[in-house]
Design a binder for these strands. Structure first.
Length: 1003
RNA sequence: ACUCGAGUGGUGGAAUUGGUAGACACGCAAGACUUAAAAUCUUGUGUCCAUUAGGACGUGCGGGUUCAAGUCCCGCCUCGAGUACCA
């Protein structure tokens, strides 16, 4: 085989790898480990486009590099195979989601008869070094058995603020039994104090109900994001702009009994942990904002003529003397209790109006100020003044206490509210004008504020909290925006809970009976009375059943993905979720690659579960992912054809005829460079454009004439006498399939066959070529700009595609896909191949390499290693290209040089590397070869070509020995012939010499 | 509005700690091979001026620091991403 036959080579080595289990990894406790992980994919039926494997290629390159460096590398892959799309498809087709999921992964034919190649084979053809023996699927009962087990652990835990750790619920029960809850410092709901005697006197149901307030996985009535279209609740991170992230359906607030995870217990640790991990700043920032820590105070205001109190949270307790009213969220429980008889109806009406609005409506109408007075008054704790209590939509039920103390002088929303309802706006800042707007900056000095007068915000806040605590109506408090995570979904295709109910009290299924598998149901829809699909299953449909009924909810998508990276360490263990020794060995993920869209979902939840499992002693690290790289999206390059618009003169007089004539005139498309001239008839045209415009006019004229004549025989003469076909100056751009376009030139024949309506279309082309316009957009079927890896692998091979995707640009960046460029990379591999051949015969020379050869090699080893160390995947390809170009020029076919070159290339182009490696006489896979060592001695030069600049401008170069001192270099430069020319007779003020870098002469 | 990120040839991009801006590739142009096309190879290719020699300008815009700025500092503009009544 003398030419580079990628098909043959790639097939051969893929088979070799599979047969020899080249990528199988074992724990080797004497070897240093490295864990490279990709965010695992949801196996959709649509398959992969070129954007999907980008991150996998990068991680594969890195994994192979680390392995060559001698690390024991764990690099697994699996599927996040529970989820909505499979279930929606199941609802439509009645096919079990397990079946479609399996087809999407393993290939087959879907219900509509489409051939699906399957994720696995698409991944395999890319030559990835995944250890498939460790594959996990979240929907596999053997896997979700342990997801259920972890749920049980979380359920059986509480958060002890004193130890700042999750502990077994047994330690809590012990304390309740001996001392009650008075001294328990736990994260949880506010509960009344009880004694040990009281606890011991309760029955099991009462005790379990109390424990719910403490458990880290708990069942409670909570305000949830209810999405009627999807028939399920959604977590906060699954709602974007008030609609569901998947599908964009409206979401409303609803009070429902739901499972939740007490992630708020970990808010502070999730925040602090960010300092220890290497994520991008923007991602850390997103998590910080999501957690939303704010310091302030919680203050109680007595309600006048009542024993009720309103608790508020404020970050500006220093502005408390500016309080002129209070506002509660409409959903706040206190509202009904304090509303006076007089205002009952108005309040009820307002509440109802608010409840009907979707999340989105409430967000959209930020500018609309609404609210309603309750009739009740609160007592200002310092001044004793009576202040009105209102309810208003701008106060969120879910944040803080669902109530605010309104300080119109210092908060714009309060200011607007006060203005709108005519409430006082007393100024509490010295020398600040608040006639137009509130003053929210923290640099103003307080006034009209009793003991706080003269203080700035910082000291004022401290002083205020001190005083509030002293007088006993509040205390300093830290508040988080982060909410507990809703953990149930009213869906079928998810993990069933290991939970059953007896007398409406939830109990756990014992470990020995796990997993609780999904029962068969007749339909994947809610029941008539609105229960989740699992309620359709009868007792006998459940493999595991206990109590009165099983839990009907299933777990959310993030359950399985929160811990999968641990299961890869020991995927087939049936005794524990993973063996402790293996967990300790593989430890954290050293490099994690995936999209940034998981910033506040998966990446936060898995950090939470990791901390939990660490607290409970199952693992020995708190952060799952040491370093994370977000790969940027590969955008599509869409091509456009421009359809000419025209007038018929009949639009008004005879619209029916107009429509008829339009229907019989085949589309006319104008080439891009002409279209430009059509639209830009303003301003002066350049001479060539002027010429082109002339051409265009002539062509348009001709077609106008042709069309005019063609119509003649097809309509009656009377109508024809009024018919005048004239092009307008406008065109309508239509997407055209990129497979019909080569280098912006449209294949006119194929285009005519593409769609029946284009069969007889006409082109106004340029010298026979129709040039398409283009635009960079997201890849999507509807834009006909999707590039699948399959056709490229077929045409150029996986090695070329791998190199090209890396070559495209920095991994993190968004970049447009340009098919053209792939030729260059393919050429590079062909050139490389040819280095090994002389006159079509494989031939390498055994002798010592030349100094030049060695210099090229070691320069390359150095740069490739450095670049990989800083994850600069794109520049490595350029470096390899330079090396091949240089070796080509040097006519190098030295065995030593080429062997090392092959090892350097192997992470990027493993197939061709294996082939050349074996041709070089090796019997083992190139993946077993050690990374070459850089020898600085090979790069030592005895002369350097100094760029000489004058006043910072480079003028000429001069070759000088490297062992010259600065002074000698200066002397040589000043003596140089060209120097005089640039000095123009002046004497240099100063000469800067940076050895082996630059010389700058200041004149 | 706020937070983060990014603006470099016709295009993707390189320049790692301030030290030759535009590496490497695409595209384009010219040439070689060919009956022709494709493929391949060679040469050129930031812009402007100049026949050449050479010169001027040049990393979004305006300032500054420095012998020297794509890189550092200040102000602004544009684009992208995220968040959005968070008290």
């Amino acid at each position: 085989m003398s030419y580079y036959d990628h098909k043959e080579i790639e097939k051969k080595w893929r088979e070799y790898w599979a047969e020899n289990q080249t990528y199988k990894v074992e724990e080797d406790y004497n070897k240093e480990k490295f864990y490279v992980l990709d965010m695992f994919p949801y196996p959709s039926g649509a398959g992969l486009h070129v954007g999907h494997p980008l991150g996998y290629i990068a991680s594969d390159v890195y994994a192979r590099y680390k392995k060559a460096l001698g690390f024991n590398v764990l690099h697994p892959m699996g599927y996040d195979s529970f989820g909505l799309p499979a279930e929606q498809y199941a609802i439509q087709t009645g096919q079990h989601p397990a079946v479609t999921t399996k087809t999407n992964i393993e290939g087959g034919v879907d219900k509509a008869g489409n051939q699906i190649s399957g994720y696995r084979s698409q991944l395999d053809q890319m030559g990835f070094s995944f250890d498939w023996s460790r594959e996990v699927r979240t929907s596999d009962p053997k896997y979700y058995k342990w997801t259920q087990w972890i749920f049980k652990e979380i359920f059986n835990s509480w958060y002890n603020n004193d130890t700042n750790k999750a502990e077994s619920i047994d330690t809590l029960v012990d304390r309740f039994e001996t001392e009650g809850n008075a001294n328990v410092n736990a994260v949880g709901e506010q509960v009344a104090v009880f004694s040990a005697e009281e606890w011991n006197s309760w029955d099991v149901a009462q005790q379990r109900e109390m424990l719910m307030n403490y458990r880290l996985a708990y069942l409670a009535d909570s305000w949830v994001n209810w999405c009627p279209a999807l028939g399920t609740v959604l977590a906060n991170d699954e709602v974007k702009d008030g609609v569901s992230e998947r599908g964009g359906h409206p979401v409303e607030q609803k009070l429902m009994r739901q499972w939740s995870m007490r992630i708020t217990a970990y808010a502070d640790r999730l925040l602090n942990g960010l300092d220890e991990i290497d994520f991008t700043d923007s991602l850390k920032e997103q998590q910080r904002n999501w957690i939303g820590k704010s310091k302030g105070a919680s203050v109680f205001f007595d309600v006048a003529d009542s024993d009720k109190k309103v608790e508020v949270f404020t970050t500006r307790p220093d502005t408390i003397f500016g309080v002129t009213f209070m506002v509660l969220a409409p959903e706040n429980e206190l509202v009904d209790e304090i509303t006076t008889a007089e205002y009952k109806d108005a309040i009820a009406a307002y509440k109802q109006k608010a409840a009907l609005k979707t999340e989105r409506d409430r967000q959209a109408n930020v500018k609309d100020i609404t609210g309603q007075f309750t009739g009740a008054y609160a007592i200002h704790p310092f001044t004793g003044d009576k202040v009105q209590i209102w309810i208003g939509e701008y106060v969120l039920a879910g944040y803080g206490t669902g109530a605010v103390m309104a300080v119109p002088a210092g908060d714009q929303r309060d200011y607007d509210f006060a203005k709108h309802f005519g409430i006082d706006i007393p100024n509490i800042f010295e020398g600040v004008d608040i006639s137009e707007a509130a003053y929210a900056e923290k640099d103003a000095v307080l006034s009209n504020s009793d003991f706080l007068n003269g203080l700035d915000a910082k000291t004022g806040i401290e002083k205020a909290i001190e005083e509030i605590e002293k007088r006993g109506f509040g205390k300093g408090k830290i508040n988080f925006r982060l909410r507990d995570a809703i953990f149930s979904r009213q869906r079928y295709w998810g993990e069933p809970f290991p939970v059953f109910y007896k007398d409406d009290v939830p109990y756990l299924i014992e470990d020995a009976l796990l997993p609780v598998t999904l029962p068969e149901v007749d339909k994947y829809l809610p029941t008539e009375d609105g229960e989740p699909p699992l309620a359709r299953a009868n007792e006998e449909d459940w493999e595991v059943f206990a109590g009165d009924r099983m839990e009907y909810n299933t777990m959310p998508g993030w359950a399985g993905s929160s811990w999968y990276f641990l299961r890869y360490m020991d995927p087939h263990n049936e005794e524990v979720f993973a063996d402790k020794k293996k967990l300790d060995y593989w430890n954290q993920v050293d490099l994690y690659i995936g999209g940034a869209e998981h910033a506040t979902g998966h990446l936060l939840y898995s950090r939470f579960w990791t901390k939990f499992l660490c607290d409970r002693g199952y693992i020995s690290f708190e952060e799952p992912f040491k370093k994370l790289i977000n790969q940027g999206m590969i955008l599509g390059r869409s091509s456009f054809v421009y359809r000419m618009l025209f007038n018929t003169n009949l639009e008004e007089t005879n619209p029916d005829m107009d429509r008829y004539i339009r229907s019989i005139i085949s589309p006319i498309f104008v080439s891009y460079n002409y279209k430009r001239l059509l639209v830009s008839n303003t301003g002066k045209l350049s001479d060539p454009d002027q010429l082109k415009k002339g051409e265009l006019d002539a062509k348009m004229f001709k077609i106008e004439d042709d069309v005019q004549n063609e119509i003649k025989g097809r309509v009656n003469p009377e109508i024809y006498s009024n018919f005048k076909f004239r092009f307008s100056n406008f065109t309508s751009p239509n997407h055209v399939d990129i497979s019909l376009v080569d280098n912006d030139v449209l294949n006119q024949e194929l285009f005519k066959k593409w769609r029946p309506e284009y069969e007889n279309c006409r082109f106004i082309d340029e010298d026979g070529k129709y040039i398409c316009g283009n635009e960079v957009e997201k890849m999507s079927k509807s834009k006909y700009n999707v590039q699948t890896p399959d056709e490229l692998v077929e045409k150029f091979g996986a090695d070329t595609l791998r190199c090209y995707e890396m070559f495209l640009g920095p991994l993190e960046q968004f970049k447009p896909w340009d098919v053209k460029g792939i030729n260059g990379v393919n050429n590079f591999l062909k050139k490389l191949w040819r280095l090994f051949f002389t006159d079509d015969v494989f031939a390498v020379s055994e002798g010592d390499p030349s100094k030049e050869n060695l210099k090229t090699l070691h320069k390359t080893i150095k740069k490739v290693s450095e670049d990989l160390n800083r994850y600069s995947f794109n520049t490595v390809v350029s470096t390899m290209m330079i090396a091949v170009n240089e070796l080509n020029e040097q006519n190098c076919n030295n065995k030593h040089i080429l062997e090392n070159l092959v090892i350097l290339l192997a992470p990027y182009a493993p197939h061709i590397a294996e082939e050349l490696w074996s041709k070089l006489g090796h019997n083992e896979s190139v993946t077993k070869a050690a990374w070459p060592t850089f020898d600085p001695a090979m790069l030592v030069e005895n002369s350097f070509e100094y760029p000489v600049s004058f006043n910072g401008k480079m003028r000429f170069k001069i070759e000088l020995p490297t062992d010259l001192s600065k002074e000698e270099v200066e002397k040589e430069v000043l003596a140089a012939e060209k120097t005089a020319q640039y000095l123009e007779g002046k004497t240099p003020k100063k000469v800067i010499v940076v050895p082996k870098k630059i010389v700058n002469v200041v004149v």
